[in-house]
Amino acid sequence: MKKFNVFINIEKEEQWLNEQLQKGYRCTHINSLGLYTFEKTDQKYVMRLDYQEYLPKEKREEYIGIYEDFGWNYIKGSGLGIRYWQKEDDGQNEIFSDRQSQGNYYKRLMNYSLWFGMLCLVFSFMIYKDTRLYHAGLWDMNGALFWKALIFETPFVLLKLLPILMVGIFAGSYYKAYVKYSMLREKG
């Protein structure tokens, strides 16, 4: 089974993946464009997503080695830094077992949202700096011609608005991670 999906929020992606696994699948491949490959299985599997920025070769080997010792399978490390881990459900299904490390995880998610949010913001400025959303001549048109032109242009306008929309979504994920991070820190 192949499914296509795009996520900006890492926790939502993890949740969606586990919903697929609960239907009796295991994940075999994830490609960078958002194509997830699953295969039918009798065993129960769980997936956990970690976020680690670029790891040099030696660190990366150690990171993967420790997880593998615990029975986790490295499905993929995306170029964005998301690490996909899968393992057979054996009751020990978490990758973090204390408040400190769980908090550090949310701190990393905050950084992730911050950097990609900033990137989209810069991109938005570049796009919006010297272009209008709609063609200037549009507003001089009348009647049916105006409506036709408006309907024709609107999809392009929405496309142009995508980067700023992404800024909003990243800001939302940043805030969610921040709330969880500060809750963990207060209790710690």
């Binding site: 420790i66 997880y67 010792d69 990758i95 973090f96 077992s97 490390s101």
Partner: peptide, 24 residues
């Protein structure tokens, strides 16, 4: 790493079981 986790499990009489990400 993995031996650290095992040793801690026996040192703590099973009450502390570290997860992979926490240990790393």
């Amino acid at each position: 790493g993995y031996a650290v986790m095992q040793k801690i499990e026996s040192m703590s009489e099973g009450s502390v079981s570290l997860a992979a990400g926490t240990l790393y």
